[in-house]
Amino acid sequence: MNESIDENAVHACQRGDKEAYATLVERHYRHVFALCLGILGNVHDAEDAAQEALLKGLAKIGRLGRARRFEPWILKIARNQCLDLLRKRKHLKTLTTPQITEPARKVNNNHDLERAIRQLPLELRLPLTMYYFEQKNAGIVARKLNISHSLACQRLRAARNELHTLLTKGGSHER
């Protein structure tokens, strides 16, 4: 049912009805944003990347062959957008003095939580972020990340344990 809504909207876009794309944005923005947030670890960057990805999608929608597969297609664009940004950042970081992050202490506010989430490695931060954005449904996370349910649960476990360590015992360098 949902896929057919996407399919109709994609076909309408391809016929030149740009307004139909608004439907796709409304339906998929949260997922695209959650993915970007999971990869980038920062709300502002995630918003920028999600926006860019959706606009790229609009520009390229004529090339989308399987209209029912809009969601994985747009998520892939978003993922590439984020990874591209991270690559550029990494390059920039090598040109600047490495930043030493002070060890995390016992914390209880959102600012420290946000920082600890950012310190998680990408493969843990991404499923954790998507899990909390997808009403704590590990199945949806698995589907969107194209991994098995048990792998999604395993990564969530590792993410929670690592986060707990960061919040209580000591930190690591920002990644």
Partner: peptide
């Protein structure tokens, strides 16, 4: 934490639509 971020989703989305 994520609920707070989620609360701004409509605004983010509106910005995309506006730019579009």
């Amino acid at each position: 934490h994520f609920a707070q971020i989620d609360a701004d989703m409509a605004t983010h989305q509106a910005r995309v639509l506006q730019r579009m």
